[in-house]
């Protein structure tokens, strides 16, 4: 029975808004833009974020750094695992949204959702292991104990992949969070709806508000503000058009940002630690040994 025949009840449509500081505001600019399926039919109007929205998102992300990076790795792992549980529960919804956004058969979309959920589980498990893999004790030539460990770099600006609306998004976002960073994500410009639904998952997963902020709109308009923002520590250029990367990298030099330019966009492949190490700082601590 289709919706049209069910004259007894009108379906409730969703308003897709931004996700900033744990809340779902509209763009402060009041703008929105039509999001269409690959066949051109209208899916929804998404918020078209502005420079001000980007800045608000950075403020929210900065505010969340102390709590999230200060949480125990076990706690972060559990919160992130909770996200996977929520994803699994919304499997059908995401499959429909991904199918509509990417113009692929529903079955194929469901596989993408499963892969995205599994990827989230993969990164959840890294939370309390990466420091052991990436850290070290340093056998210095003297009476000192020295050790080195990875720490989150802080606020990471993420330009989500334009094509893969959920699996790609999850693959770039989860590794940033696992190591304790907070994120401002610019969703795929033409396929932003699964990103906002993911934000709903995050909002109901014990992830503190502000740890992830999702912005929708025109990537080329928003990315330069993120790249030049002095309170953003690192930038992931995955979703930037190749022709725009150089300008964004130049803007990022303003405060010597770490800039990640991916070489591999095959989201099916095992990512290993390739997306974990770009967003951490190695800190080395020395102390004398003596009596």
């Amino acid at each position: 029975m289709s919706d049209h025949e069910d004259i007894g009840r009108l379906p409730v449509r969703k308003t897709y808004k931004l996700y900033v500081g744990g809340a779902f505001p509209r763009s402060e600019s009041g703008r929105s833009y039509p999001v269409t399926a690959t066949d051109g039919s209208l899916l929804a109007h998404a918020a078209q974020a502005s420079r001000k929205d980007v800045r608000d998102a950075v403020v929210a992300a900065r505010k969340a750094v102390a709590g999230w990076s200060g949480a125990t790795a076990y706690n972060r792992g559990q919160v992130l695992y909770r996200v996977a549980e929520m994803l699994e529960g919304r499997r059908e919804q995401f499959a429909s949204e991904v199918a509509a956004a990417e113009g692929i058969p529903r079955e194929q979309a469901a596989k993408q959702v499963d892969a995205a959920t599994d990827r989230w589980v993969y990164y959840a498990g890294w939370a309390d292991k990466f420091a052991q893999v990436a850290g070290s004790t340093d056998p210095v030539a003297g009476p000192y104990f020295a050790f080195s460990l990875p720490e989150p770099t802080g606020v990471v600006g993420v330009l989500a992949p334009q094509e893969s609306s959920l699996l790609g998004l999850v693959s770039v976002l989860a590794p940033v969070l696992t190591t304790g960073n907070t994120a401002v994500v610019v969703a795929s410009e033409t396929r932003p709806l699964p990103a906002i639904s993911l934000a709903e998952v995050l909002a109901t997963s014990d992830l503190p508000g502000g740890v992830v902020n999702v912005i929708t709109g025109v990537t080329a308009e928003l990315a330069p503000w993120l790249a030049s923002h002095r309170d953003v520590n690192a930038l992931d250029l995955t979703g930037a058009a190749p022709g725009e990367r150089a300008a964004l990298q130049r803007a990022a030099a303003e405060n010597v940002k770490r800039v990640y330019v991916p070489r591999d966009l095959d989201w099916q492949r095992d990512p290993g630690t390739s997306r974990l190490s770009p967003f951490v700082e190695i800190k080395t601590v020395w102390h004398p040994i003596g009596i």
């Binding site: 030539a141 003297g142 020295a146 190695i282 800190k283 080395t284 601590v285 020395w286 102390h287």
Partner: peptide, 16 residues
């Protein structure tokens, strides 16, 4: 990147 506790300006090839 480097925190020296109860010491300062220590360098070693094994320490990042």
């Amino acid at each position: 990147g480097v925190v020296w506790a109860n010491t300062f300006n220590r360098f070693d090839p094994t320490a990042p």
